[in-house]
Design a protein around this nucleic acid. Structure first.
Lengths: 214, 214
DNA sequence: GCGTGTGAAAAGATTCACAGCC
DNA sequence: GGCTGTGAATCTTTTCACACGC
């Protein structure tokens, strides 16, 4: 089955929202309530959920526990993914200590940097290696997913180096640059710079009454 | 004029790419080259750029300097935006030291936290205030944009508190939760959790040969 | 010949509206 | 009566294909 990317994005939000409902002791929820809580139209919620069969009850709503479990099954990994993080600066370290990065879906098994002060040490309990040794370590550890937190200038290089010798499946890129990767690798970007620029652009556009040229 | 959101996202990337071409001494560039460098179709590049009038030369391409200047004008703010950051934990501090956050488009004028060890001090040269004093300080400083880097549990509360008493125009949210804000406020999310989940989901889907149920 | 600019076609995503079940 | 599930309609975004200027 094909599931559109915007749908997947919302499904993740539904899981997160249901988690909260569950903890709050809610047993049943309607598409309207979910939508209101996430700023999404009720009809959109229903369509998204309908892709996985009839999971709600007409006239009643969705059983919170059942829906939560259902969605979690969909997102359950076939195994614990092994991830490596490349570039352990401020941002990388902040992410390692970040609770949104704690999950039983994956384990960060290796860090890489060029700073001799970091190489050979453990950071947040994870060993940090020299970027030079990357292909070797990635292969030994069976890493399939990369998190890129290097400066922009280094990002494309390390990705090229890693992907040419290791069967990497996906990359999450935090470097504020656009990476070009082989077709078979799935790439997602968390681009702080772009998001901020978009925000400021639309604020400007609104102030200008829709006229870009001021 | 109306410019679609995906277009704005690409325009920001074009600026960044042209900056690099410019530094590399490139004078003229084609839509094909831009597209290849960013993983975008040439026809898409041309359509995006055509919204702003005929800026290229047929049979030749685009003048790098001219196109760069043109796009920069479009994104130039009417004034330097004043931004406040709320929640100065690992992620917030990392962002403050991050070079993608250095721009002449805005200035971060105030930080907020609940930690007494941080309140009253300067962090990266910016004064940190008590969250309790937020409405007051935001008004005094004329802040129009918020960056939310609090834990998820606090994010909606601080946003509600800030937006009810101050004319906030936009919010960039890093908390891994979905915020609901008044209609007139522009909200962008940088949701690490969602991006990672999407990536892992699509890797799984590929491994399963497109069959979610494994 | 080469590469832009652009209307028209295709593809993709959201919203509507209502039948069907509780 | 209330709320889901879903085909059909609408709206949005991308891609095509070719006329036009260098």
């Amino acid at each position: 089955m094909r599931i559109a990317e915007p749908t997947v994005e919302r499904l993740v939000q539904y899981i997160r929202y249901l988690e909260r409902c569950r903890e709050a002791g809610k047993r049943v929820i309607s598409s309207q309530e979910i939508g209101d809580g996430l700023g999404i139209k009720a009809s959109q919620v229903r369509k998204d959920l309908s892709y996985f069969g009839e999971i709600g009850k007409r006239g009643v709503g969705y059983n919170v526990e059942k829906l939560y479990g259902h969605l979690n099954t969909i997102f359950a990994p076939p195994k614990t993914w092994k991830i490596a993080m490349i570039g352990i600066g401020n941002l990388g370290e902040a992410l390692l200590g970040y609770k949104a990065f704690e999950s039983d879906k994956f384990r960060i098994v290796a860090l890489f940097d060029i700073d001799p002060a970091k190489i050979g040490r453990k950071i947040h309990g994870i060993p940090c290696y020299d970027v030079e040794d990357m292909p070797q370590v990635l292969n030994d550890e069976g890493v399939e997913v990369l998190i890129i937190t290097t400066p922009s200038s280094a990002a494309q290089d390390v990705v090229d180096k890693a992907t040419e010798s290791v069967p990497i499946k996906g990359i999450l890129n935090f470097a504020p640059t656009t990476l070009v990767v082989p077709e078979h690798i799935i790439l997602y970007n968390v681009d702080i710079f772009v998001e901020l620029e978009k925000l400021l652009f639309y604020i400007k556009l609104k102030e200008m009454g829709g006229n870009i040229w001021g």
